[in-house]
């Protein structure tokens, strides 16, 4: 890789989408609007079925919105000019097993770059780099069969398969589910590194503490509608909304409030918190 990655700016304007079901169309997204600056990170929160996964898939272009539009670097993604930008959006699905199919880790990760039409040496370089980035050194893991890896390793391999395509905006759907705490921390570190590299992130998760540690901004969905958006909303109104959508407040934010400190400057990590409280 040469030089740091630059993130894509993302905006959704009045995006609506419904699923066709047997008897009626079920709205999954209703008039969703928000903006995320280049290199910023967004936590997408909300209960199951609130539309988080759908929103990610609409942003990636797997589903076309019925109304509204997705903008990447201010270019409508559905327009001809947006096609190349859309290729720079990476989407990692929740279940790694859904995404792995090749007979070796290296081949699996190479799938995406080859679809981009890259030359073989470039593909190989991208694969090695992505495997190393997710903590699966290519010399050790490259030849392993994806299904012979542990759950946590599979999750990281699926992430590598997307990172090898060098996304400028990375969308992650529940990346922490059913990982043990140590593996969760590993994954969080990888995401922090990507963020430091300038990649824009959208992280759909139920883990508010990790979301707080990783994301600059927050978007809360409830039944397909945006109920809170922007910087972490720390006011009373925000609390009511969170209760309505059954969200807990991040531990450190809650602690800071209950200690009577300024919540706007609550620490992002326990290390920072300990430093402040020593």
């Amino acid at each position: 890789m040469t030089g740091p990655l630059r993130g894509l700016a993302l905006a959704c304007r009045g995006v609506s989408f419904s699923y066709e079901e047997a008897r009626a169309a079920i709205p999954a997204l209703r008039d969703v609007s928000f903006k995320l600056g280049a290199g910023r990170s967004l936590a997408l929160l909300g209960a199951s079925g609130s539309g988080k996964s759908t929103l990610l898939q609409v942003i990636k272009g797997l589903d076309a919105p019925e109304a509204g539009e997705v903008l990447l670097d201010d270019v409508p993604a559905a327009a001809a000019a947006g096609a190349e930008l859309r290729r720079q959006v990476g989407l990692v699905f929740q279940t790694p097993e859904l995404q792995l199919f090749a007979t070796s880790a290296r081949e699996d990760v190479a799938f995406g770059p080859r679809r981009l039409g890259w030359q073989e040496p470039d593909v190989a370089a991208a694969v090695d780099e992505a495997l190393a980035l997710v903590g699966l050194p290519p010399e050790q893991f490259g030849g392993r069969h994806p299904y012979a890896l542990s759950g946590g390793e599979q999750r990281r391999l699926a992430l590598a398969g997307v990172l090898a395509m060098r996304p400028r905006l990375l969308l992650l759907d529940e990346p922490f589910v059913s990982l043990d705490p140590a593996t969760r921390r590993e994954l969080a570190k990888i995401l922090l590194r990507l963020r430091a590299d300038g990649v824009s992130l959208v992280l759909a998760t139920h883990d508010v503490d990790l979301a707080w540690a990783l994301c600059d901004e927050v978007l809360v969905l409830d039944a397909g509608r945006v109920v809170a958006a922007g910087p972490w909303d720390l006011g009373e109104a925000g609390r009511e909304l969170r209760e309505a959508s059954r969200l807990r407040e991040p531990f450190l934010v809650d602690l800071w409030r209950r200690l009577g400190r300024d919540v706007a400057s609550a620490p992002r990590t326990v290390a920072e918190a300990a430093e402040a409280l020593r």
Binding site: D180, R184, L255, L277
Partner: peptide
């Protein structure tokens, strides 16, 4: 490789 509750971690 366990995690503590957030309070314990802190």
């Amino acid at each position: 490789g366990l995690g503590l509750p957030a309070a314990g971690e802190l």
